[in-house]
Design a protein around this nucleic acid. Structure first.
Lengths: 249, 249
DNA sequence: TAACCGTCAGTTGTAGGACGACTTACGTCT
DNA sequence: AGACGTAAGTCGTCCTACAACTGACGGTTA
């Protein structure tokens, strides 16, 4: 068995590398306030000295932060912390669970399960997940709350073959991402479609919003090889969740 | 056939660099179908030989494409074209004009100007643009059409001080981005907010959509220094414009 | 036969040093 | 005071080399 090898690999998060790790550290220092918006980061050579890595690695880290909109790199001048309104930092384009985002915003997230069932995939779901028509899938309907206020209604679909029976129970309780992570199925990207929806058939349970106006995030989550691991439709109640997109060149 | 990028340095547009240029060329080849989804790109050394640039430059280009979700890089294996369901669609997070996006999708874009005026900024606009209350701004209301069908209604606001009188005339006709580009005001990032809107007061003119359901993209465009150069609200008619977001780790 | 396990070539990740291109500040000259 | 040249600092690109990883091939073993 090669179990010991995989365990060692876990010490360094799977799929990460020095560049990503350094980017995460720098990001933490920026968020921590050490480098306020507009401030200049140390030079690349200074950073490479401080962290004991090569300047190549520093550059990949900085480039990553730049692509996330955290910093602006100016040739000949330096690298500067981007100035967003002071508070916003997580954009929609970064892949993370909604629960975590709610938590980072200072609220208490909670999941409420409405229905969970195993059934054949509908043609649309099969197309999105690139599986055969009628393959068994697990369907989960949940509400996502922040401080007991409904933020969104989610409809998730996962092929049953990906979830061993021992983990099915966690699906309705824990975050979808966390369960997938435990199974070694880290989605690294998601192809999302956006729609405005006005319907009374989305919400369920108590404290339904009055307007019926939602922002629909229709997502296919993929692993590193491009294989679809989950299909989720999340209906965000308009006005309750601030959606930020960072558009970069 | 090797082409050297460094030879034509004088022709290079401002603010670009070799890495970005190479990324653009590779992107064109991918979109052109030379490398279909799932295909492996030539190795980094092969690309660096073919284009006459160093492997470092190739890596920055590939990293850029990776951050845009165009490719997946696998250590020890190669770089593979990401698989979006067969079609190539431009993601929302890449900053480009709507006209260009329409054109890339194979339609004919057209702008229709409804109203353009110079007036003091409203408090909300002043806040978004980080200017003093009541500063003179130019306000433009337009419709964006693809093959003569209204895709979106846009409400743009630019501080008057940025636009010399000689260029004001072009504002309603040409793309906003193109005018700003001619003035050396290249927006490199935009902080956008997303909303679902249901209103009958957005549309004007003939061929108004029946539903009144829109996806509102509320954007503040910034230059490289983080200064706000324009504030735009674009109401996309629901269902007519496919919105793609690429979420990456 | 079938599973296992090195080996090896190919590819991406990281290192170190060097120089070019650009920005900024500062001192000099007019 | 203003224009200009200079120099130091910083990012952009190049070169070479090696480490880490992947995938395929073949030999070994049960």
């Amino acid at each position: 068995m090669t179990e010991s090898l995989t365990d060692q690999r876990r010490l360094r998060p799977r799929g990460s590398n020095l560049g990503r790790e350094l980017a995460e550290k720098l990001r933490a220092r920026i968020i921590g306030g050490e480098f306020p918006p507009g401030a200049r980061l140390p030079s690349e050579t200074a950073i490479s000295d401080a962290y004991g890595v090569s300047r190549v690695t520093v550059r990949t880290a900085v480039k990553l932060l730049e692509s996330q909109g955290m910093v602006n790199v100016r040739h000949g001048s330096g690298t500067y912390v981007a100035d967003f309104g002071g508070q916003v930092r997580t954009g929609l384009q970064e892949l993370r669970s909604i629960s975590e985002t709610i938590q980072e915003m200072g609220f208490t997230p909670r999941m409420e399960r409405y229905r969970m069932e195993q059934r054949p995939a509908t043609p649309e779901e099969a197309a999105k997940l690139a599986i055969d028509d009628g393959t068994e899938v697990i369907s989960i309907q949940r509400a996502i709350l922040a401080d007991e206020i409904v933020m969104a209604y989610s409809y998730d679909v996962i092929p049953s073959s990906l979830i061993p029976a021992s983990h099915v129970g966690e699906l309705g309780v824990d975050s979808l991402f966390r369960v997938l992570d435990q199974l070694g199925l880290q989605p690294v990207r998601a192809l999302a479609e956006l729609h405005a929806v006005n319907s009374t058939e989305v919400a369920w349970g108590p404290s339904q919003p009055e307007s019926g106006l939602y922002l629909l995030l229709d997502q296919v989550h993929q692993d590193q090889r491009g294989a679809a691991v989950a299909y989720s439709r999340t209906y965000f109640v308009e006005g309750r969740f601030q959606f930020m997109i960072l558009r970069t060149r």
